[in-house]
Amino acid sequence: MGLDYKWVFWNTHKKAYDRLIVSGMVIYLVLFFTISFLTNPEIIAETVIIRAFGSLAIIMLHIILAIGPLTRLNTKFLPVLYNRRHLGVSMFLAALIHGIFAIIHFHALGNVNPIYSLFTSNMDYGSLTNFPFQVLGFFALLILFVMASTSHDFFLHNLSAKTWKRLHMMVYLAYALVILHVFLGAFQQETSVFTTATLFLGWLTLVSLHLVAAFKESKVDRFVAEKNTEGWHKVCPPEEIEESRAKIFTVKGERVAIFKYDGKLSAIHNVCKHQGGPLGEGKIVDGCVTCPWHGYQYLPHNGQSPPPFTEKVKTYALKIEKGMVYINPKAFPEGTAIPPISSS
């Protein structure tokens, strides 16, 4: 959380992860080049570059798409999630090199504009197996470009978290386009059981992870709490909540984080305004609820970020009845101060 924007927000952990990303990419490329030239000495450099960077981008895309559901299934993966943005931009750069070399190699030597050539060199748009697959890759690259260029906090802040999230969910369309680009392109020209099966297994892994995580979340969303006569939802005994931590509770399909701190209890909406991080998985640091994803902070009693920051989340009223915490399901507007209740 910072007041001014920086081109790249690096800290010690991010630098370590970035070194890991760069080393992984370099090792993969070196191995790919070595094996390609050893197994096929006649192969030309442009072909190897196109293949190496294309396959690298696909592998990275699979890793990126697996991180979200993995963190929902196991919080041990959270540190990887904090660094997903840099991985995404690196993946785009690999895809861009693949795209640029492919356009130069196959379309730049004629007498028409290379982009025009990409769309018109094969006009068999009505066919499936002869479909101009390069067009699919072009649109996937375009989506990845939009995502990479708007990945900075400046755009997140100015587009609003909701719009930004919608925009970045286009990565799923990019993934589908990339898969079809490979199946209708490379696999048509060089049939290989190994590469086909690998990509199919990648799809199977991603689909399984996302659907398992989605159905697990749906189960939590459908939770119906016991209510008292006034319609307040029964949560748990206060002792069940750890000091400086929260219990995440479902109210009308939305998640609420009930925090215990300094002998008090307060409830706020669980979703961080920055990137939708789960506030209830964070803890109280310096008197503020601190998002586990990027450290955005909120005061627990009013859901407001401490000045000069302006982020606000909804708040909820709590009470204790017969040794049980109850929550009013009706949320207060974002930033409304609600006096905390005693946890004893």
Binding site: T129, Y175, L180, F183, Q188, W203, V207, H210, A214
Partner: peptide, 15 residues
């Protein structure tokens, strides 16, 4: 993801 689970393998198979 339900959409990707249903549509994509069909297109992969046809390809």
């Amino acid at each position: 993801w339900i959409g990707i689970a249903v549509v994509l393998p069909l297109l992969m198979f046809l390809a």
